[in-house]
């Protein structure tokens, strides 16, 4: 299928949301989403990501002073039915009183397409999502994965200006989530449609997002490409929320970061660094005579393809290290570690 309408650029200006009971779900937010871009809102529940999506959709109105622009046109006052966006809900929101085909064709029926046009487009959608065999099924006869495909097909059938997805994979089990994620990724690339995707799953965000907007307590914590978010988190919250982060406290002495367990070379360290942060994959076991860090194994979990080690280095929390699977570790065993200095961060 080719996207008939050209992709949409979305602009949020000063969008805040206070609910009737006085809770501030969203602090004033400015954001530009480029045409054809996939932006993922990521954060824990209650961080304001779904509220933002609903403001873009037209299901919520921002507080006075906020505005939503579609290709430069102010749509703040338009309800969702006039915005021509496609939306996929966490619970799918498939209509139980309609068959799969009727669900997919509903938006077209509303737009008063002819019967044959609707049939053609529904067929196209069924083929695209590879669910032709389900056309006449009732919605309650579908599995979760099938429902998700129908929901996607229904949202895309009207050729929306943008596709909005609210935790679309959360209700599925892990294996299905992986395969559908791949499918959605392929679909979004192929269609070139502007997409806004809300999730609390960082793996999903990393895989799908051109850019990720990390949110916390109604504020944007960081906006960036997945790699930036992971490698250069802007705040401690982002560092902790995305992936696993090790922390080691110490101080800079003569260009080195000195800790209780040893000293690390850290050429780019800020002079006042009190804590070094680094990812598990930047730590390696050093069996040499003088390793930079020394610790004892607190726990070792064999994960099949690798082993995850928790190494006690005298800090509050043990360091997390991923290492090759073949080697055996015993609890209490003393080991040496080194950290790739390019992976060291201060926040």
């Amino acid at each position: 299928m080719t996207q008939a309408t050209k992709p949409l650029a979305i602009r949020l200006r000063n969008c805040a949301k206070t609910f009737a009971d006085g809770t501030r779900a969203l602090q004033p937010l400015d954001l530009d989403i480029g045409a054809g871009e996939t932006v993922v809102f990521l954060g824990p529940s209650g961080c304001g990501k779904t509220t933002t999506l609903r403001i873009i959709a037209g299901l919520e109105r921002p507080d006075a002073g906020g505005s939503v622009l579609f290709d430069g046109e102010d749509v703040t006052a338009l309800p969702i039915e006039a915005r021509h966006v496609g939306m996929v809900f966490q619970s799918y929101a498939l209509f139980p009183n309609m068959s799969v085909a009727e669900n997919i064709g509903y938006g077209l029926r509303i737009r008063r397409l002819t019967r044959s046009e609707i049939a053609a487009r529904v067929g196209e959608m069924l083929a695209m999502m590879r669910i032709e065999a389900l056309a006449d099924r009732r919605v309650d006869q579908l599995s979760g994965g099938q429902r998700q495909r129908v929901a996607l097909a229904r949202a895309l059938a009207v050729r929306p200006r943008a596709l909005l997805l609210d935790e679309p994979l959360t209700a599925l089990d892990a294996k299905l989530r992986d395969s559908l994620r791949l499918e959605i990724d392929g679909l979004l690339r192929r269609l070139g449609i502007t997409a806004v995707y809300v999730t609390h799953d960082q793996a999903e965000a990393m895989a799908l997002g051109d850019r990720i907007v990390v949110m916390d307590h109604g504020r944007v914590a960081q906006v960036g490409r997945p790699r930036e978010i992971y490698q250069r988190p802007a705040t401690r919250f982002v560092a902790d929320f995305i992936g696993t982060m090790n922390r080691l406290s110490g101080r800079i002495e003569q260009g080195r970061f000195v800790t209780a367990a040893g000293a690390l070379a850290w050429p780019e360290a800020p002079a006042d660094a009190r804590e070094a942060l680094f990812r598990p994959e930047d730590v390696a076991i050093d069996d040499g005579a003088n390793p930079p860090l020394r610790g004892t194994v607190a726990a070792a979990f064999f994960l099949g393809d690798r082993t995850r080690l928790f190494v006690d280095v005298g800090g509050e929390r043990p360091l997390v290290i991923e290492t090759e699977a073949r080697r055996d570790f015993a609890r209490g065993q003393a080991i040496g570690l080194r950290v790739d200095s390019r992976g060291l961060m201060a926040l």
Binding site: P79, E81, G86, M87, A93, F95, Y106, G107, I110, L164
Partner: peptide
């Protein structure tokens, strides 16, 4: 889940009366 069903219909362009007669009443 009336709210989500109605939001789903609205996202496909259905106005208030269409939602009431196509979604609410049949369900």
């Amino acid at each position: 889940d009336l709210k989500t069903l109605e939001e789903g219909a609205a996202s496909l362009g259905a106005g208030f009366a269409q939602r009431f007669f196509h979604i609410v009443l049949p369900n």
